[in-house]
Write a protein that binds this DNA or RNA. Structure first.
Lengths: 222, 222
DNA sequence: GCAAAAGTGTTCAATGTACACCCATGC
DNA sequence: GCATGGGTGTACATTGAACACTTTTGC
């Protein structure tokens, strides 16, 4: 049976919260196409690995981090999106707690890698990666409100103020402290620890941890 | 540059409401693999067409219908999902008003095509198509509640009772007539026509039409 | 004692849910 | 006149939004 074969890549939008900012990992390409432009990390899917494993492999190559929240975003496949030929990309996004990352790893001489603020991205990204980032931010914001993905961006122990900051940074708006805490409490997914965190000349904040190993999704939410 | 090339298909879950039932179009394979098993219609993406166009082409080949609501669902790509080799499939789902379909079209001698109730599917479908259908139903139910996709399953003019029936069939539960109408009214997307529909020995029902050409999605909902 | 962030409740508005009767028609 | 589905409103519960003061600490 004959059919056209097509290159399949995975591209990964890797989010983290750094310096009170929503940041995304970009790589600067040192080879054509789009030489010297910033892009989302990604690579070809190998014959014997699943899409998700390909994404996990790329993610680990870039960040050195395993066991990360990783979710398929969308598949982009316009015929001309890659000048090298017909290439379809399955986009994923990942959420990493900033404390887990020391430094992004640039793959040997292929490119450099660095964090960029989602709110001040380089002008024009390679391929259709502007579009992918747009879409990823939309999805992240959406899921933040209806699921507990936000917890993935924090270390195991965190204060409620830190959690609120994550929400504020991603949604890009101030939230009311009392309403926020009421909402989080109603989810019933946090354990209040008998530990506090001191930081500056004020009352110490109670540390909390996330109850569930697994994330909680309202039924049908993707 | 070397990379593994992979076959890319689109598979389409085509939903309609027929005989007060949520039905999906399946094709019976006449060739290996999965000979004589039912499958979702689909086919290989051609070199020069976008994923969505490939899906539209397949959809039209099966049903003869154009201008259909069509949305990307998810991309499935486990290495062993197709015994012929490494094939990744981008799944779509489509919603068709039953009045637009006369009869599904079986592609010449490749297979036969027929509608099946989502609630009484054949035992074991080809490939991972059970899983794809599961996922499609979840997505459909989810979007039904937060968007106006449901209107795509009705003809241009419809009664509120017909609309309610669509919701009840898909969600598989009874809804309260007054609350349903209040909710629909609050969406503000229907035009009450000066026409009625007589059907049986009772008060005729007012016909309505959908206001928007475009579908309405709350921001961020995918 | 004062600066700084932590922590905590109440009121009001909007939305969702439960529930029952009259209306227009064909026969 | 009766059987059938069409059409309508109100009371209550739940959820979301606005809003201000006391507590604990370091200096």
């Amino acid at each position: 049976m004959y059919y056209d074969k097509i290159g399949v890549t995975v591209d990964i939008v890797i989010f983290t919260i750094k310096n009170d900012d929503l940041q995304v990992l970009l790589v600067k390409r040192k080879m054509a196409p789009f030489k010297d432009q910033w892009a989302i990390p990604g690579g070809f899917v190998r014959k014997e690995e699943s899409l998700k494993n390909a994404a996990r492999r790329e993610l680990e190559e870039e960040t050195g981090v395993k066991d990360v929240y990783l979710e398929q975003l969308y598949t982009f496949g316009k015929p001309k999106r890659d000048p090298r030929g017909r290439i379809v990309t399955v986009a994923y996004y990942a959420l990493i707690s900033s404390n887990r990352i020391i430094k992004p790893i640039a793959k040997t001489d292929v490119y450099e890698a660095d964090w960029h603020s989602m709110y001040h991205l380089p002008k024009k990204l390679a391929f259709d990666h502007d579009h992918i980032l747009d879409y990823a931010l939309q999805r992240l914001r959406y899921k933040l409100e209806y699921t507990t993905v936000g917890f993935q961006l924090l270390p195991k122990k965190f204060t409620l103020t830190e959690l609120q900051k994550v929400y504020e940074i991603i949604l890009n708006k101030k939230l009311d402290k009392r309403n926020f805490r009421k909402k989080i409490a109603s989810l019933n997914v946090l354990i209040a620890l008998n530990e506090t965190k001191m930081e500056g000349a004020h009352r110490p904040a109670r540390l909390h941890s996330f109850k569930e190993k697994k994330f909680i999704f309202p039924k049908g939410v993707i």
